[in-house]
Design a binder for these strands. Structure first.
Lengths: 259, 259
DNA sequence: AAGTGGTCTAGACCACCCG
DNA sequence: GGGTGGTCTAGACCACTTT
């Protein structure tokens, strides 16, 4: 075989390697590659990605294929495309999502940000359910208990579990540093960004502890919302369970599939 | 200007007209065109569409553009693409969707089809809320009341409202003709196919009537699910409100957006 | 073997946003 | 004007399914 000879004016740039199995479609491997760069904080929320044509040259892949990967990222909410401007990493805001579930409004009927009170933060031994949901082998996990208050009255009680390898800084900062919204705190203090959530909603009799915290009586019902939060590569990074009074529950849903 | 002369062997086939505004993208107008053919029953659930290349020739549009329209239809659940086989109109099945909401299981924990009992079917004057939700001007609307029973016990009560121009046949057939599932009956008796639903879930004290029907007591809570069902062109064709005991409620949700 | 959808490429032209 | 994403075209080649 003849060795290839390059002229002095010919420069070979090696294309960067792609994530994922070689048998996967190129657009899928590009998607994974970009998602990892976002999850790793290489591209941060608000950042603009290189233009399609630039990415196509860098990775030596046709623009149409790059485009498909970017469109899929946009479809999954990881980036936002702005015509004439560019493609930008999204900054999702799930922290208020619970407000969609419960009818907590001020006198004028507007939703508003409830007060947040972190009741405890500590390392505990990992409950089996938490280990399963987060895919953890670590015997210890960070547990935070948070109350959310409307008009000074606790309306939601939340148990929040976080892997200590990702969230250690949360244990040492003051509550003021964390603030009323957790996901921005995760991002700023720990570099962890939530891009998708799954929730499981059910109704049960109030527990003794919750009745005391929420000012309910034995026999009252609570809605409990269990949530798994995932980063850009779909790795679970938070599990929480929130409870509130059932009568205040409300939810809206759109479905295009009938499985 | 020279007139164009066609040889005898040159045949011009006029491309069929497209739905939608001429300023819309071609793939969008193709989508609308195909969706209408599905909504009109021209292409029925289970039918195979012409192949991409065939459609491209018929409409004189590049295959890539036709492909985009078909991909969007698949994304919205109107068609199903099968590699090597073709593109087929889907037959969605929302009728059991309520079973996802409530914990109704047999002894072995499996979901199963509950008994369905249609309590009444008649024309009533259109309630304002129904007129609004269905976009109706007709002063009369079909109202059906249905009970769904597990182990012979009514567990769900449903009020179902349908435009009489689309669903007149439902008033004259026997209950056996309708069967336990409504959406297949809509399709077979009235040619109406549901492709998407929206639901609004809330919790309230049980009403006197529902307490009697469901065997509940004053002070018990019910979950009520309001549903709008739409056809392939997104026109609302059914509005219903279903109530069941709150304790049996359960729901699961995945969300990739944080609005 | 023939027909289908799935992937990938290459390039033209348009619409939008900014300085 | 120059850069960006959005639309549309044209065609090669691959993978899957049925006859």
């Amino acid at each position: 075989m003849a060795r290839q000879i390059l002229g002095a004016d010919t420069v070979m740039h090696a294309a960067p390697p792609l994530e994922g199995d070689v048998h996967l479609p190129l657009y899928r491997r590009l998607y994974e590659t970009f998602a990892r760069r976002i999850a790793a904080g290489d591209w941060k929320p608000g950042d603009g990605l290189p233009a399609e044509t630039g990415l196509a040259k860098i990775y030596r892949i046709a623009p149409g294929t790059v485009r498909r990967a970017l469109d899929d990222l946009a479809l999954n909410g990881l980036v936002e495309r702005r015509h004439g401007l560019g493609t930008f990493v999204r900054r999702p805001n799930f922290d208020n999502a619970m407000l969609r579930f419960f009818r907590f409004r001020d006198k004028d009927g507007n939703a508003f940000l409830p007060e947040s009170r972190i009741v405890s933060r500590k390392l505990v031994s990992t409950p089996p359910k938490v280990a399963r949901q987060l895919g953890l082998t670590d015997p210890l996990v960070i547990k935070m208990v948070r109350h959310r208050l409307w008009d000074g009255v606790p309306r939601l009680v939340e148990d929040i579990f976080l892997p200590q390898d990702r969230f250690k800084p949360l244990l040492s900062v003051s509550e003021e540093m964390i603030g009323p919204l957790l996901y921005p705190a995760y991002e700023q203090l720990c570099g962890q960004v939530v891009f998708a959530i799954e929730e499981d909603i059910s109704i049960a009799d109030v527990t003794v502890d919750d009745a005391a915290d929420l000012g309910l009586q034995t026999g009252d019902l609570t809605v409990s919302v269990e949530r798994i939060a995932r980063n850009a590569t779909a790795t679970p990074i938070e599990w929480r369970i929130s409870r509130g009074e059932a009568r205040r529950f409300r939810y809206q849903l759109t479905s295009g599939q009938g499985d």
